[in-house]
Nucleic acid binder design. Structure first.
Length: 798
DNA sequence: ATGCATTAAATTTTT
DNA sequence: TTTAATGCAT
């Protein structure tokens, strides 16, 4: 066996340890996945563990997929590959497809996303007569989520919630939970909870799974919530063949219920546990690791570890402070081009991180202006789009007639004349008879002696009922989902509906629906329906679509990557810009609060962000930032203040300067200030540092109060027009001109006033043109249909 | 049902 | 600033 030669001693220990529980503390970039994958291979090859007896659990489908494919690469014999590597949620769904009847709901259960959940909570709140002017529905949702994360069934929620308001929350949770189970619908949290319930209540079932999995591996253990940990414990029996891999320093999902205590308490829960630390980092330069180590060392409750590497020392991370966010953005754009020129870094190897999505706009604008290709990793997932959810709701209803949220969603989509009033009647009937919404609707349609609804509505609804019945039988007879869906959208004339309701982007939305059909086709090819399986292929697709985000966008080669720090976890880039390093933003201080909610977690975010960088790290901020409408002056992030200045170099063009001696100051840079040679060029570092002008910070200044509102610009007196400044800086000062045509608005101006021809709206005059993401959005006055907004690619300019 | 105006609220989001 | 949600008049 050659593969173990690639492992360092700690990794090898983590791979080879057997006979008891194992906790692997895997620092950032320490080859964690390599260890897990090798461990699986080792168990199979060296210890003759049957692949079916290995369970690998991750949080993301991406991680699960990577694990599967890397194990496959190690094991040439396909028949020896483990078949139980998946996310917590997929695992639980798979278990419940077998065990659901024991808990009293059918195997054909459907899965709710957060939006469905919210709708159900709204529904329940309404039924309970909870006034609308009270606490928001979202606050009830977060109560439910908290209960789920902690593994509380309603009973436990009651016991744990002494206060009045929480008692009401618990009541709502109870009704919600009953309703969900009665409907055969499960939210994400309940997938876990239902399996826990099943294992705790039915010993034979638990025995079966205990026998099934003799070795368990858990990835990203620091991200588990109490419910998930409880599940793991239920699946693990003496001699506790469980290996947990995690890094307490990278725990950034506490707000979603993850608790580092799981990791900290692991040794206690599994006595005799072996702990292995992976501290050798294979990703970053020592200069970056020095900074990251220094930053995280401040946290009190952590398992001490220090990352080191045999990589070169590399240039020190660079500090830059702009006077406002436009300057920060312009600096980044300039620096991106420099990095490309001097270090042959490709756009795709560069990333820009921010704490909150709202920050991204300014960077996008600047990158566009500088003609730098970029992509933003974020946004609503494909499966959260309204049009996709509509179609999926039809299919869900076909699979699960009791899925009320799906039924209520499509009962009047497309319009069938069933408004709020008619809908209430159906709900009333459902409540009276204790049956779900759709069956109640059907029963009202069959009632001939005293017909419900007016004629037109009734006929439309009868058609709907027939349609759903047809879908149901087709699904049972294993008609391919793609075929079924094509038929469905035809039947309901969904395109027509979209054009009526969303004339401005009906075509885009319909494209998405077509994309859904394509996704189904892919699914069918990948996973042909095996006869005798308990689920239909449609059910399989619905499950996949609920538990798998739209296929991860391929890491675009030629584009700078913009994302939140959370989204950056697990990724790595040559060059990283960590932006908005200001107190209030990172650490983030919410709304009216004085202090960050969880400063340690914010610091871990800082740490995660820095450890993504392989070669060069930029830490940027600005003196005053416009966010949500008004300008705020922020102090530099407290995270930086705790760090020895010698670990950093300040860009001489920065308006605030730090020196190794610890004297800080800011310069008033005039427009003619010569921009020095390239930064982040290791050889230049010392020189540019030495020549950087230094000025003392005024001892105290009223204008620099923390989190002040309107802020007079520093020193300069009068604020330069931000746009102006940005334009100036967009042209790199060393004379390098951007070759590509800039999208500065001239092409927009050229459009306004002209006549455009649209396929359905005819001809009209363009009154406005603006960028909308990468596209151009036009406002056009059509004589026939009035003013419409259209994406430029849908019209022909005459 | 639909369009408009006003108002409020605005981390992070693996499943 | 932007966005979404709500209420109100059509």
């Amino acid at each position: 066996m050659t593969h173990q030669e690639q492992l360092n001693p700690a990794q090898r220990e983590a791979v080879e340890h057997t006979g008891g529980p194992l906790l692997i503390l895997a620092g950032a970039g320490s080859g964690k996945t390599r260890v897990i994958v090798h461990r699986i291979a080792h168990l199979i090859q060296r210890h003759q563990v049957h692949p079916q007896h290995i369970l690998g659990v991750t949080f993301t489908n991406k991680a699960a997929g990577e694990m599967v494919s890397r194990v496959a690469r190690l094991l040439s014999d396909a028949s020896r590959r483990p078949t139980w590597i998946s996310t917590f949620h997929s695992l639980c769904a798979r278990i419940l497809r077998r065990e659901a009847p024991a808990l009293g709901f059918p195997r054909s259960f459907t899965i709710f996303d957060a939006d469905d959940q919210l709708r159900m909570i709204k529904q329940v709140a309404e039924e309970m007569g909870i006034p609308k002017d009270g606490p928001s529905v979202a606050s009830y949702q977060s109560f439910v989520e908290r209960a789920r994360n902690r593994g509380w069934l309603p009973q436990a929620a009651f016991e744990q919630s002494p206060k009045n308001h929480h008692q009401l929350c618990a009541q709502l949770y109870e009704r919600y939970h009953q309703r969900m189970r009665a409907n055969g619908t499960l939210d994400f949290g309940d997938l876990i909870l239902a399996v826990i319930e099943c294992l705790e209540r039915f010993d034979p079932i638990r025995e079966r799974y205990l026998a099934q999995w003799q070795h368990i591996l858990v990835d990203e253990f620091q991200d588990t919530n109490p419910a998930q940990y409880r599940l793991l414990k239920l699946l693990t029996n003496s001699p506790f063949h469980i290996a947990a891999v995690g890094d307490d320093d990278q725990s950034i999902y506490a707000w979603r219920g993850a608790t580092v205590e799981n990791l900290l308490g692991f040794e206690h829960d599994f006595p005799g546990c072996r702990v292995v630390r992976l501290e050798q980092n294979y990703r970053s330069t020592q200069a970056i690791l020095d900074l990251a180590n220094a930053a995280i060392a401040v946290n009190r409750t952590r398992l001490p570890k220090v990352l080191w590497t045999t990589n070169r020392h590399g240039p020190k991370p660079v500090r830059f402070t702009g006077r406002h966010e436009g300057e920060e953005a312009a600096y980044i754009a300039r620096q991106i081009e420099l990095q490309r020129k001097r270090h042959q870094v490709e756009y795709g190897d560069i990333a820009l991180f921010y704490r909150i999505n709202a920050q991204s706009r300014i960077y996008e604008e600047q990158l566009r202006r500088s003609a730098i290709p970029y992509r933003v990793i974020a946004g609503t997932s494909f499966y959260e789009r309204e049009e996709i959810k509509d179609i999926l709701a039809y299919l869900r209803l076909a699979i699960n007639p009791a899925d009320d949220i799906a039924a209520m969603r499509i009962a009047n989509v497309p319009r069938r004349g069933l408004g709020a009033k008619g809908s209430d009647q159906v709900k009333l009937r459902a409540q009276e008879r204790g049956i779900p919404f759709f069956p109640a609707l059907e029963s009202m349609l069959e009632q001939n002696n005293a017909p419900c609804f007016r004629k037109q509505t009734r006929e439309a609804l009868q058609q709907l009922a027939a349609l759903i019945r047809r879908l149901r039988s087709e699904a049972r007879s294993a008609t391919p989902p793609s075929q079924l869906t094509s038929w469905l959208i035809e039947q309901i004339d969904y395109l027509g509906y979209l054009q009526a309701v969303h004339p401005e982007n009906a075509a885009d939305r319909f494209d998405n629906v077509q994309e859904l059909v394509n996704a189904m086709r892919d699914f069918e090819e990948e996973r042909p329906l095996r006869h005798g399986e308990s689920d239909t292929s449609l059910q399989g697709f619905l499950e996949t679509s609920a538990l798998v985000q739209a296929a991860d966008q391929p890491t675009a080669q030629g584009a700078v990557n913009l994302m939140t720090i959370h989204a950056a976890k697990g990724l790595e880039f040559q060059v990283v810009f960590l932006t908005g390093l200001e107190d209030g933003l990172l650490p983030l201080v919410r709304g009216g609060a004085e202090e960050p909610e969880n400063p340690d977690e914010e610091r871990r975010l800082f740490y995660v962000a820095m450890t993504r960088a392989k070669e060069q790290l930029f830490l940027t901020d600005c003196l005053s930032r416009r966010l949500f409408g008004n300008s705020v002056a922020n102090q530099p992030s407290r995270f930086l203040e705790a760090i020895d200045d010698r670990l950093l170099q300040t860009d001489p063009t920065s308006c605030r300067l730090f020196s190794p001696e610890g004297t800080a100051g800011y310069s008033t840079r005039s427009r003619s200030y010569p921009i020095p040679r390239t930064l982040a060029d290791p050889d230049d570092t010392a020189r540019s540092f030495a020549t950087a002008p230094r000025r003392r910070l005024p001892e105290s200044s009223e204008t620099w109060t923390r989190k002040s509102r309107e802020v007079p610009p520093p020193a300069a007196g009068r604020s330069p027009d931000p746009l102006r400044v940005v334009e100036e800086l967009a042209i790199p000062p060393d004379g390098l001109r951007l070759q590509r045509p800039t999208r500065d608005g001239s092409e927009l101006d050229a459009l306004v006033g002209r006549i455009a021809r649209h396929r359905t709206f005819g001809e009209g005059r363009i009154t406005r043109a603006e960028y909308s993401g990468q596209r151009i959005k036009l406002t056009i006055q059509f004589p026939s249909v009035g003013t419409k907004c259209v994406i430029s690619s849908y019209v022909e300019v005459v």
